[in-house]
C-alpha cells in the first residue's frame, strides 16, 4: 500500500495560532471534565445547570470549539471554580498570602520539579508551607 497524504499529515508544521487555539480549547475541556468527574456530574448535568442542550455542551467540551469568555464564565459560575487564570493574577494571589500552600499537581515520572523562591519576596513570612503530593 503506497504512502499517501495521510502518512505525511502529521509531519506538517502548523501556524502557532492554530496550535495555541487547540491547546487552550482542549486544556479547558480537560479541566472542566476533571471537575465534573470530581463532582460526579455528567456533561448532561452540566448542560441542565447551564440551561443548554447536551449537544451544545458536548460541542463546547470537544477541544475544538471557540469558547467565548462569556461561555467560560457561565461554566465557572455553575461549577463554582475557576477554569482559567491569567499568569499575573495567579502570581499576585500567591505572593499576597501570608501563609501560602502550593500544591504540585503534576509530578512526572523520572523528573524532578524544583520549586524555588526568591527569598526577598517572602521576607517576614515564616509560615510558608510547600505541600507535594
Amino acid at each position: 500500500m503506497k504512502t499517501s497524504k495521510a502518512s505525511s499529515f502529521f509531519e506538517r508544521e502548523i501556524k502557532p495560532e492554530n496550535k495555541l487555539f487547540v491547546d487552550n480549547s482542549l486544556d479547558i475541556a480537560v479541566e472542566v471534565n476533571k471537575i465534573l468527574d470530581e463532582y460526579g456530574w455528567t456533561q448532561k448535568d452540566l448542560a441542565k445547570k447551564l440551561g443548554k442542550s447536551e449537544s451544545e455542551v458536548s460541542k463546547w467540551l470537544s477541544g475544538l470549539h471557540n469558547l467565548t469568555l462569556k461561555s467560560i464564565s457561565k461554566i465557572e459560575a455553575v461549577l463554582g471554580r475557576k477554569i482559567i487564570e491569567v499568569p499575573s493574577r495567579g502570581r499576585r494571589k500567591y505572593f499576597s498570602d501570608r501563609n501560602s500552600t502550593i500544591r504540585v499537581e503534576h509530578i512526572e515520572k523520572k523528573s524532578f520539579h524544583k520549586v524555588s523562591f526568591e527569598a526577598s519576596k517572602f521576607k517576614g513570612r515564616s509560615n510558608l508551607k510547600v505541600a507535594c503530593q
Binding site: 499517501s4 497524504k5 499529515f9 492554530n18 487547540v22
Partner: peptide, 28 residues
C-alpha cells in the same frame, strides 16, 4: 485512495486552518 487522505486533499485548500487545528487535536 484511502479515506483520510481523500479528506485531507479536499479540505486542504478550503479549510487549511481547520485542518491544522484537527491535526493538533489528534496529536494531543
Amino acid at each position: 485512495v484511502d479515506l483520510f487522505s481523500d479528506f485531507i486533499e479536499r479540505c486542504s485548500k478550503k479549510h487549511p486552518d481547520e485542518l491544522e487545528q484537527l491535526k493538533r487535536w489528534l496529536e494531543r
